Computed example of a mutant assay.
Amino acid sequence: MEMVILVDQNDNPIGTMEKMEAHRKGELHRAISVMIYNSKGEMLLQKRASSKYHSGGLWTNACCSHPLPGEKTEDAARRRLREEMGIDLQPRFAYKFIYRTDLDQNLIEHEYDHVFVGTFNGTPDINSSEVEDWKFVSTEWLKKDIRHNPDHYTYWFRLIIDQLTNKTIDS
Rank of each mutant, 00 (worst) to 15 (best):
125 D>E: 14
101 T>C: 13
27 E>S: 15
66 H>E: 13
152 H>S: 11
74 E>W: 07
107 L>N: 04
158 R>G: 05
131 V>A: 04
124 P>L: 08
61 N>V: 01
109 E>F: 10
91 P>C: 13
23 H>L: 15
166 N>K: 10
37 Y>M: 14
160 I>Y: 08
159 L>R: 11
126 I>C: 05
48 R>L: 04
119 T>A: 01
55 S>F: 00
3 M>A: 08
170 D>L: 04
86 G>W: 01
31 A>S: 15
44 L>C: 09
72 K>S: 01
71 E>N: 12
124 P>R: 14
77 A>C: 02
87 I>G: 13
39 S>P: 05
109 E>Q: 14
15 G>S: 14
165 T>S: 15
71 E>W: 05
168 T>S: 15
126 I>G: 10
117 V>I: 10
99 Y>F: 15
138 S>I: 06
94 A>L: 02
124 P>D: 11
118 G>I: 03
106 N>V: 10
40 K>E: 06
84 E>W: 06
90 Q>N: 09
134 W>P: 05
152 H>L: 13
7 V>W: 02
150 P>Q: 07
77 A>G: 04
27 E>Q: 15
36 I>S: 12
39 S>N: 01
164 L>E: 08
42 E>L: 12
69 P>E: 14
148 H>I: 06
105 Q>V: 00
42 E>D: 12
43 M>Q: 01
34 V>W: 06
3 M>P: 02
135 K>W: 10
162 D>L: 03
105 Q>D: 14
27 E>T: 11
55 S>W: 05
171 S>R: 13
109 E>W: 06
143 K>Q: 05
45 L>G: 05
163 Q>N: 13
69 P>K: 14
4 V>N: 03
89 L>I: 09
159 L>E: 15
14 I>V: 13
52 K>P: 05
45 L>D: 02
157 F>M: 11
13 P>Y: 07
15 G>Q: 14
113 D>V: 09
18 E>S: 05
39 S>I: 03
9 Q>Y: 12
137 V>W: 08
87 I>V: 12
10 N>W: 07
135 K>I: 02
118 G>F: 08
71 E>L: 00
67 P>N: 12
63 C>D: 01
110 H>C: 13
111 E>S: 02
130 E>C: 10
34 V>S: 09
127 N>H: 09
81 L>D: 05
86 G>M: 06
23 H>M: 15
46 Q>D: 08
112 Y>A: 05
96 K>Q: 12
110 H>Q: 09
73 T>P: 05
144 K>R: 07
22 A>P: 01
103 L>I: 10
164 L>A: 00
72 K>F: 07
85 M>W: 07
14 I>H: 00
48 R>I: 11
150 P>M: 06
160 I>W: 03
27 E>N: 14
162 D>S: 10
143 K>G: 04
41 G>S: 03
63 C>K: 04
42 E>I: 13
155 Y>S: 03
81 L>C: 02
64 C>P: 04
80 R>H: 06
92 R>V: 06
69 P>C: 09
29 H>E: 08
55 S>Q: 04
107 L>A: 00
144 K>E: 04
30 R>A: 13
159 L>M: 12
